[in-house]
């Protein structure tokens, strides 16, 4: 199979997948490296990537993280089951699309405006996007292909994504169950022993205790909080 879309880094501002001739898969089929294949073939390759590459991670988006629709709970339960079957799998959420400036907590969340930061910091080599709105998924997936060597899997409830290495379309909870079964089959074939274990809890940074903070905690920025009228700061970069 000719791999049209492969893991990056493809370089700054890479050519987009649609302009390279990749078309979305028709109903009932999937995309694998930019080629239209059967859903099972794409799932098997994705499962092998998740089982053999470092730090497999699931990035759930707002459509599954928030309790806004009746069928969300089923999908969420299925995602947790899938995560528990992938050895050492983590879940890093993308709860909203607000840019996290000046600093994102890369261990706790991923952001579509700079997804590469979370992926590079956590050394993630295989990831699943699920429940991210399509326009932000396209943005993130292309950015990840541009700047990282992460294998991306898009589990999309609509038409799929050209920029992902493997893209499954029309996702329901049953599709996730099917993917889970394929992961277990591939895991057994590879001879990996694993007891289903839920991913770890979110390691959010502790809230700053402002009472215990001193100007030295602000490092090179301490001058910003210390200057007084008429004061001359001599030590600058």
């Amino acid at each position: 199979m000719l791999k049209k879309i492969t893991e990056g880094p493809a370089g700054y501002m890479p050519q987009s997948a649609p302009s390279m001739g990749v078309e979305l898969a028709p109903e009932g089929q999937a995309l694998l490296y930019g080629n239209i294949v059967s859903e099972e073939e794409a799932m098997r390759d994705a499962a092998r990537a998740l089982l053999t590459r470092d730090n497999p991670t699931i990035f759930p988006g707002p459509q599954v993280l928030w309790d806004w629709k009746d069928d969300v709970a089923d999908k969420a339960a299925a995602i947790l089951e899938l995560a528990s079957e992938i050895p050492n799998c983590k879940i890093i959420p993308m709860p909203d699309y607000r840019p996290k400036y000046p600093k994102i907590d890369v261990k706790a969340e991923i952001n579509p405006n700079h997804p590469n930061l979370t992926i590079l910091d956590n050394r993630i080599k295989a990831s699943i996007f699920v429940g991210v709105h399509c326009h932000y998924a396209n943005l993130s997936l292309r950015m990840i292909r541009a700047g990282t060597d992460c294998y991306t899997i898009a589990l999309c409830a609509y038409m799929g994504h050209e920029e992902a290495m493997a893209s499954i379309r029309d996702l329901h909870a049953s599709t996730i169950h099917k993917f889970k079964e394929i992961v277990i089959e591939e895991r057994n074939k590879l001879g990996i022993e694993w007891e289903p274990t839920l991913p770890p809890e979110n390691p959010s940074l502790q809230k700053e205790d402002h009472a215990a903070l001193s100007p030295s905690d602000y490092g090179e920025y301490r001058s910003l909080i210390m200057t007084r009228k008429g004061e001359h700061v001599t030590e600058v970069e």
Binding site: P60, W66, A73, A77, P93, P95, A108, E201, N202
Partner: peptide, 15 residues
């Protein structure tokens, strides 16, 4: 309603 976290994912949400 849109600010209600899915109970399944409560423990993996950022603080």
């Amino acid at each position: 309603d849109i600010y209600k976290i899915n109970p399944e994912f409560k423990d993996i949400m950022p603080r």
